[in-house]
């Protein structure tokens, strides 16, 4: 008796994540219907976001938040990827275990800090630096991208390190015995061996950066305008949702659901590619 109940309960719990995913997709899709009908796929390339005077309708295009999301993520990836690789190499090949351990813990703690802390710190400490040395008025794509990079850095470094650590010692030792330098071992033995895990970590971090809300909300400027330089303020899908979603009406609300749907689908595709193509581990 108890056994059957236990088994059924565990089965229903397991299927719940399936229904959640389907549920999120269908809710977003059905609430986005109005905007989907009204704007179709042109939504992606339309840069106008304007409600009518009577607040009943208007023209809503997703181009600006989409571009803002892509650009801030791109800046973050350009900065974070080489740094993360460097850290992963440092932890697996350079540092002695006495140093690697505390550094690893520090990197993991950096990953545990809530994103709102990064955003707030970025606004008060980092934005003024960007303003003084690079230009603009502090908040903008560049600042958002840099702080986003700091945020995804530990995550990317930790997964790449795990991938690099799986390289069998015997492979590395053979290369060293042939007179290879450390860099040659990294380039010709470790990198090819850990390639899947490394690319996977980069793509996973990309997915995380695209959907990040709070760190970017403080820093991107939240302005509905096309940036003409990287220090210009703009907005992103998560930030637009965070600031304007709850107050939106009718068609504008539907356009917001449309944006959320786009973000959801893009994230799922990216995460799936990373997890099932590059990070696929042997079935235990």
């Amino acid at each position: 008796m108890g056994g059957t109940f236990f088994k059924n309960f565990s089965f229903f719990s397991a299927t719940l994540s399936f229904f959640l995913l389907i549920g999120i997709f269908s809710i977003l899709f059905s609430y986005a219907q109005d905007a989907l009908h009204e704007f179709g796929f042109d939504f992606l390339f339309n840069e106008v976001w304007e409600a009518d005077e009577d607040d009943e309708g208007g023209i809503f295009g997703g181009f600006i938040p989409i571009i803002g999301t892509l650009l801030s993520t791109l800046i973050a990836m350009i900065i974070a990827t080489p740094l993360a690789m460097g850290i992963a190499i440092f932890l697996t090949e350079i540092a002695s275990s006495k140093i690697a351990k505390p550094v690893s813990i520090a990197i993991e703690l950096l990953a545990a800090i809530p994103s709102i802390i990064y955003g707030m710190w970025g606004l008060f400490y980092f934005a003024p630096i960007v303003q003084e040395y690079i230009g603009g008025n502090g908040v903008g794509l560049l600042t958002a991208g840099i702080v986003l990079a700091i945020m995804i850095l530990p995550f990317m470094a930790a997964i790449s390190r795990d991938a690099m650590q799986t390289t069998p010692a015997v492979l590395k030792e053979s290369a060293y015995a042939m007179g290879a330098t450390k860099f040659e071992v990294i380039k010709d033995v470790i990198m090819p061996y850990a390639k899947g895990g490394i690319i996977g970590s980069v793509i996973l971090a990309l997915g995380r950066a695209l959907g990040e809300t709070m760190a970017v909300a403080f820093l991107i400027g939240s302005v509905m305008s096309i940036p003409s330089s990287i220090t210009d303020p703009s907005t992103s899908i998560p930030v637009l949702l965070a600031n304007n979603f709850a107050e939106a009406q009718d068609l504008e609300m539907s356009a917001m659901y449309y944006l959320a749907l786009i973000l959801f689908i893009v994230s799922l595709v990216i995460i799936s590619i990373a997890k099932f193509y590059f990070l696929r581990t042997k079935v235990k």
Partner: peptide, 25 residues
């Protein structure tokens, strides 16, 4: 089980703001 495991893995990285939108609806 393997489908559910994969879906749950993907859900783990779903953007948190989207979950907020879903719960709002």
């Amino acid at each position: 089980a393997s489908i559910i495991r994969n879906l749950s893995d993907v859900m783990m990285s779903a953007p948190s703001i989207v979950i907020g939108v879903f719960v709002f609806a």
